[in-house]
Design a protein around this nucleic acid. Structure first.
Lengths: 105, 105
DNA sequence: TCAACGCTTAGCTTATTGCCTAAATGTCAT
DNA sequence: ATGACATTTAGGCAATAAGCTAAGCGTTGA
């Protein structure tokens, strides 16, 4: 949880997550979208991966990154429920999410 | 949004939010719950307030802090929806929250 | 085999954060 | 008025984070 919030505190890292919302991308694909060196982006990706928000898979010379959406939704919803009792109705939706992860209604 | 995520990146500040979940507390009440100096806690409170997550009200010689739950729920839900399309069903709940803020079901 | 490519690791610099103590400000009660 | 209390501001120090360049490692294809 600590690592997740640290990961989310960077605007660059949140943008990376947004880029990965609908597709996987290679490290280079991601880096090309920022005015920043590749090593820096690689470091950001490693922070996101350590936090469990993305996973990487090496295929040939490329390393592809993709989201772990459950991780993000679960952590943030869990926190909101803890801090903000008013939003407990979200708990039911969260539980529903846990079972059917990849389907939109 | 940047300030909200920065505010949430500290475990001390997240704990403060949790303490304020169900009641308002004075700065001193909050500080007494941490093994940390009062000025440090005051600084954390100021970060939370700048982010719009809490508001303060001076009454006599005390300064009381309380949550702004909408701010937290809206920011985090908004972000989850942006990054994690799978959780769009939450959007309806979020909209419902916006209207009836203080009632539990 | 070797050169080019994709990515990560290493090492460095600079900026920011987090904590502290000491001092200032404002409020209450005597 | 004055002393005690609640909180914030100021200033300083150490640890962390974010960026860069250069170098390393594995993979591809000539």
């Amino acid at each position: 949880m600590q690592r997740v919030f640290e990961a989310l505190s960077s605007s660059v890292r949140r943008k990376i997550l947004a880029y990965l919302a609908n597709t996987e991308l290679s490290a280079g694909d991601i880096a090309s979208r920022f005015a920043m060196s590749k090593p820096s982006i690689s470091q950001h990706l490693s922070v996101l991966e350590t936090a469990g928000l993305v996973v990487s898979e090496k295929r040939g010379q490329f390393v592809f990154y993709r989201l772990v959406p459950e991780s993000l939704a679960n952590t943030l919803n869990g926190f909101v429920q803890e801090v903000c009792p008013v939003s407990r109705p979200l708990k039911r939706e969260s539980a529903a999410l846990a079972t059917k992860i990849d389907g939109e209604p």
